[in-house]
Design a protein around this nucleic acid. Structure first.
Lengths: 344, 344
DNA sequence: CGCAACGATGTAATCGATTGCAAAAGAGGA
DNA sequence: TCCTCTTTTGCAATCGATTACATCGTTGCG
């Protein structure tokens, strides 16, 4: 910001009107007569004027942007969601700020975002943030509207855009049972995560509904990552009494699981069937192509963004509306009828 | 922004000093005596004061943020880079804005970002933007510092952080040749992309250096995506005279290529060896695990961010420094000695 | 003892756009 | 022609923090 930009006053002079008129011609065209509007627009063109957002935001007492809190930016799962958010936000003129909640200085800067004037609203993709951050500003400070996406806070009535995780789990289990599996395991996400909980609970419920055993030993710990899927595979390999099918709470874990199994000489779906969750793009291209529960990631992002805009503009529902988007089973190659007998 | 926040004046009153002193105590502590500083800090605490960024930015004539121009946010390749950028930017206090350059309203809003006061600098991951956008503002307007990352503009001397793509290609080809391959193909990225060009050119050069044929029919069109890799596989399958090894310009394409081949009954590396490029996280977990050229994505992001900060602060080199980060070959399972004879 | 120099603080102008209020300009209507 | 009502415009205050410049003590040194 070294040279001088034309400011609104320059445009006003060029057009022979007042700054107020220029301002109105640009942000409330209907308040200005057709003729002056044309003159002003021409002057804007001629001077190359561009509005100064800092000034507008100061005067309007707003931030001019929203922030998206992502648990781990490096995780490609969020890419599609972010894209959806960006798409939906583009026409609004709001900036989209991105912050990684698991970063070094997370604590303080998160508060900074939340507390005031850095953002007019936020989309939270990480319900695992410290309570005091998410519920901050209840006291003296003002808290901007929040929309949770993917994850949410139990017992909290703020707006959210999620999927029915238990139903997704049920689809996976039903599919496996229909294929003839009776011995079904589950690779879980990180502990305490709401998605982990609901998917695991959904799995348990579906198993029970089919009158199948729920063996705790077949519930493998994981954290949604590729590596944790591979680690679960090692534990599966070390078992005497293995499940013939495994439902993984994320495609990444399913990929890691299948890969590690393959390297140990176990075939999918020949020896064990695997179902993933998410339907990330590569799922269809894996070897074998992954059977999975598809969730509409881009739509989740777009919906969350739209919801946030409504909240900011105070249009639409007063708040607290929880959208639940549909999931569906996508059958590919990684599931099949169970082997005559468990290998080994 | 409905309720009233404590402003600097409130803090000043609470502390019994002037607003100037409060401002200095907060952003230039050394200008204020130890005692007053303590008093001010206490008053800040007591009032719950948080600075208004819009006001500061207006006064300082800056934007308070940088923007990252991403060609396709949904592409997970960029996730790691964004993460690196976010990490490096966090301590600076600059906001990180993200914009998808292939979005609907791209043209106009990109200009908006570039031209002024929306950003103090930008990191461009898409050198394919229209010239008039990237070179905009040379005339009357001021253009903020730019750092190119991954991609760059040929003949442009602005700062950039890249890798040696030709060398990466050479590593891949050398590896294949060392395994005994003489018939080597290449799946390319999108036309006119600088990465496509340099990698293809590097491939040609390496091939020539080994005295091997450069057959145009073995250079498959692609666009870095999974689908285009799978499409290339179809073309490979339809050939009479196939290469025994294929170097793909991205891991995504390699994944798509291998997957499609597998579904057609062709084995990797038994029937054909495949090398990727990028070393995305899943590469190590694929079946077969992908041999690839690793590039330090997170480091690219961090370096670009640091460079941009230097440019903004006018520290460091005056500008135009081009960093080239190292790449390396990672040998996994997708490459092996060529089959005795080409299948079919 | 007196003056220069320095450090700490306060005063007030400033950044650039928006908007409440008032004045001016039309538009009808009697 | 005069008056009321509506639409367009302009004036000037305002948003909240920063910072150039001025002020007021202090300290140091000749």
């Amino acid at each position: 910001m070294t040279k001088r930009f034309p400011k609104i006053r320059d445009v006003a002079e060029a057009a022979g009107v007042s700054t107020a008129t220029v301002s109105r011609a640009l942000s409330a065209p209907e308040m200005v007569s057709r003729d002056t509007r044309a003159i002003v627009l021409k002057a804007v063109e001629a001077t190359g004027y561009r509005m100064n957002h800092a000034a507008r935001n100061l005067r309007r007492r707003q931030a001019g942007g929203i922030v998206v809190l992502v648990p781990n930016l490096a995780n490609p799962f969020f890419a599609q969601i972010l894209s959806g958010i960006a798409t939906a936000m583009a026409p609004s003129g709001y900036n989209v700020l991105i912050a990684d909640t698991r970063q070094a200085d997370a604590g303080s800067s998160m508060l900074d975002y939340l507390h005031n004037n850095r953002a007019d609203g936020l989309i939270v993709l990480d319900a695992g943030l410290p309570e005091e951050v998410l519920s901050a500003g209840q006291g003296r400070a003002f808290q901007p509207p929040i929309v949770f996406a993917c994850e949410w806070l139990e017992g909290d009535d703020r707006a959210s855009v999620t999927i029915d995780n238990a139903y997704g789990a049920r689809l996976a289990i039903d599919h496996l049972v229909a294929l003839g599996h009776r011995r079904i395991g589950h690779v879980m996400g990180p502990p305490d995560n709401i998605l982990t909980l609901t998917r695991a609970q959904g799995t348990r419920a579906a198993l029970a509904a089919h009158g199948l055993a729920v063996r705790e030993g077949w519930f493998f710990a994981g954290d949604f990552s590729l590596g944790s899927g591979a680690a679960a595979a090692q534990r599966w390999l070390a078992m005497d009494d293995r499940p013939t099918a495994v439902f993984c709470a994320s495609d990444a874990m399913a990929g890691g699981f299948v890969g590690a199994l393959h390297r140990a000489g176990v075939r999918v779906p020949g020896d064990v069937s695997v179902v993933g969750f998410d339907d990330i793009e590569i799922a269809a291209h894996l070897v074998p192509a992954l059977t999975t529960i598809a969730q509409p990631r881009r739509l989740i992002g777009e919906t969350a963004a739209q919801k946030l805009l409504d909240l900011i503009r105070k249009t639409g529902q007063p708040g607290g509306v929880r959208d639940v988007l549909p999931v569906e089973l996508v059958v590919r190659e990684s599931t099949g009828v169970p082997a005559r007998r468990s290998p080994r």
